[in-house]
């Protein structure tokens, strides 16, 4: 089994306040997503650690789509993945950013 580490950065997002949150579980076909505040000048940094090797272009597309929908900046997203499908990844990312923002009062 090999593992792949992927990194993405999207600039020009809206600074988004929140509280560090984790959603999902690192189980077969699933993933866990952590969102943390980070002073990145409006950028969103994403780091993915995945058990499924060779899907970098699909991850790129899913992350690009996520950023286009939320424009969330000044956050760091960390993902541990055990072979989740792109649709599951998208839903988890939405859940993660909503949880992150929702906890902020």
């Amino acid at each position: 089994m090999t593992m792949e580490n992927l990194k993405y950065r999207f600039d020009g997002g809206k600074p988004t306040q929140g509280v560090t949150s984790v959603v999902g579980v690192l189980g077969s076909g699933n993933l866990e997503v952590m969102v943390e505040p980070a002073a990145l000048g409006g950028a969103c940094e994403i780091e993915v650690s995945t058990a499924a090797n060779g899907f970098g272009t699909i991850w790129q597309a899913v992350m690009k789509d996520f950023f286009a929908r939320h424009r969330a900046g000044d956050i760091k997203i960390s993902v541990n993945d055990a072979g989740a499908t792109p649709a599951i990844v998208s839903l988890r990312l939405d859940q993660a950013i909503e949880t992150y923002k929702g906890k902020h009062k």
């Binding site: 089994m1 090999t2 593992m3 560090t20 984790v22 579980v25 690192l26 866990e32 952590m34 943390e36 650690s49 995945t50 058990a51 960390s78 541990n80 993945d81 055990a82």
Partner: peptide, 22 residues
């Protein structure tokens, strides 16, 4: 030792397996 502290397994990385935050 919350997820953000990333106290993860030192063994799984050697085996090329993703490690959970907690």
């Amino acid at each position: 030792l919350s997820a953000a502290d990333r106290v993860t397994s030192p063994h799984l990385a050697i085996l090329e397996q993703p490690a959970a935050f907690d």
